[in-house]
């Protein structure tokens, strides 16, 4: 799982930092592209036209597309017994498809768990993957990322009636508080610097046990990516909440065929031009959970 990727996270962090610091170069590369794309009809127009031979032209002609997403990630991509998947990733995919004149009904959803994501893109089984997909260098060797469209990060989850923990710093001050995470995971390593002693860290093999320990009061906090925590919060019937800021950065990108720069730039422009729809998508899905910070579309990375 994600736990295998300390190196990946470091890489992702570096990219995110580079993204923060280098606003000017990023904009200078996207600006000319924006003016190009602006001449094309954008989202919600009936018949967008694209340069022949591009992925957009192919998809717009077909009037349908295949999107890979998760079916088991509450708030981002969760599929019930009937109907399609629901969540933020799904809504983002709909915005992009909409810009090519493809309606939600014509999107075929393909389940893409974490470990198959690169493969399905390489094999052409999907046109894009929107699946809580952290951008990192290792993955960039096989595919191209558009975005990031969201920056996830590690956060703390506590009992809803607990006001004593307001962020990771609270753990250092209150040495009797225990925090739970998963054995061998990157979040477990990250939280250590916020603890007064290692005995404050309780480790289990899965997050379900952490949530159980939080419910019974054996631990006072659970930590991992906010995305996973939001899932637990939404399932907890108001018993849990998120507190504090995100204290790590994991930028989520949209995976497409390696080297498809035109499609990548189209996705970035589409998201930028549809920030209202983007914000609405967040507020109606993962953002609806208590404690979730408002989404802000991050500056896109240059496509390559």
């Amino acid at each position: 799982m994600r736990s295998k990727t300390l190196i990946a996270l470091l890489a992702a962090g570096t990219i995110a930092l580079a993204g923060c610091g280098g606003t000017t170069p990023t904009e200078s590369t996207t600006e000319p592209m924006t003016s190009d794309a602006a001449s094309e009809p954008m989202a919600s127009t009936d018949t967008p036209t694209f340069e022949a031979g591009t992925t957009m032209a192919k998809l717009a002609d077909a009037g349908k597309m295949k999107v890979g997403t998760k079916f088991d990630q509450p708030g981002f991509g969760l599929k019930g017994l009937s109907g399609g998947p629901e969540g933020f990733d799904v809504e983002v995919a709909k915005i992009i498809a909409g810009a090519m004149g493809i309606t939600a009904d014509n999107i075929e959803w393909v389940e893409t768990p974490s470990k198959v994501r690169e493969e399905v893109i390489e094999q052409g089984k999907v046109d894009m993957v929107v699946a809580t997909y952290t951008i990192n260098d290792k993955r960039k060797e096989r595919i191209t990322f558009a975005g990031p469209y969201y920056v996830a990060g590690q956060q703390l989850m506590v009992a809803a009636d607990d006001d004593s923990i307001i962020g990771p710093e609270s753990l250092k001050e209150q040495k009797d508080k225990k925090v739970c995470s998963v054995t061998g995971s990157t979040p477990a390593e990250n939280i250590k610097e916020y603890l007064a002693s290692d005995s404050q860290l309780v480790l289990f093999d899965v997050y379900d046990k952490c949530a159980d320990a939080l419910r019974t009061g054996q631990v006072q906090a659970v930590t991992t990516d906010n995305v996973i925590l939001l899932g637990f919060v939404s399932e907890s019937d108001g018993k849990f909440k998120l507190v504090g800021e995100q204290f790590t950065e994991e930028p989520y990108g949209i995976g497409i065929t390696k080297g498809d720069v035109a499609f990548c730039e189209f996705i970035n422009t589409t998201l930028k031009d549809n920030e209202d729809a983007y914000n609405k998508a967040w507020d109606s899905t993962a953002g609806a959970v208590e404690g979730a910070s408002p989404a802000k579309l991050p500056a896109a990375e240059p496509c390559s």
Binding site: L6, I7, G184, S185, A188, D198, A213
Partner: peptide, 22 residues
Amino acid sequence: LGAFGVGGDLFSVSDTLTSARG
């Protein structure tokens, strides 16, 4: 015991090294 919240024992060292530190 390492799988039941008792951290830091010899066997959980292997988890930390293989999973988190690669």
